[in-house]
Amino acid sequence: MANEEINQIEIRGVNKNFAIDKKSVDVLKDINLEFKRGEFVCIVGASGCGKSTLLRMLSGLEPVEQGEIVIGGEKVLAPSLKTGMVFQESRLFPWLSVEKNVEFGITRSKAKRSKPADKKKVVENLIQLVGLKGFEKAIPKQLSGGMQQRVSIARGLINNPEVLLLDEPFGALDAITKINMQNEILRIWESERKTMILVTHDIDEAVYLGDKVVVLSSRPGSVRKIINVDLPRERDRSSPEFAAVCSKIYKEFFKDAKIKEPEYYI
């Protein structure tokens, strides 16, 4: 990145279709997006609109067949350690302790082999960061859903990626734990200054966290609107300004719903 980088992430003309029962189904249609380094981006959309698929393409898990995705000047062709991923489910290894699950995230590049002592320190720090000190030796089944998701976030951060992709990381949590986790992820974002791309179907969450909220339309998913959230942090969910941004996004969805299900609004 010798020359001034304008956008760290560029998604250009991406389409995606899957074959379901021998028929090709469009999932994503003509996605064009640009994100800056250090930005917190939230992607909202209805269930099944292709949010996970888009994130999987960004991660390199799902091949990009039409269009291209460029991260840090390089085309995404396969997974890279520069991009971390936290999945919709925590996906921990049930036979490994919290400590070992986080440590498993470390993939040492051939160039710099980390010493065992360093390794231990990094794991310790991350466990501290996600607030799981004292639970190092617990195995996943001994943790609550929220704690499991935090382990997963720690694992996603351990290779110090430049970009962290989060797929509905708080989707399965209760309202209170969710708010705590949102604050936690903001704290991590503020201290680590990574680019974060978080998928959610919770509009309130998107406005609370994002610098930028990308609203996707339902299937096939396309970018319906990009909303910049210029509210100062720490954001106040009860403020009228916050509500105004939320309602702007709600309206985007509402348009959709009105056309599709008029009988819903008697």
Binding site: G60, P79, G84, M85, R91, F93
Partner: peptide
């Protein structure tokens, strides 16, 4: 497959995948 995807994201080699994921 979900666990194997975690290994792909983390770019683990075949031996690690076998020993630490597939066998357990």
């Amino acid at each position: 497959v979900k666990l194997l995807e975690v290994a792909r994201i983390l770019q683990k080699d075949k031996l690690t995948v076998l020993g630490r994921i597939i066998l357990p």
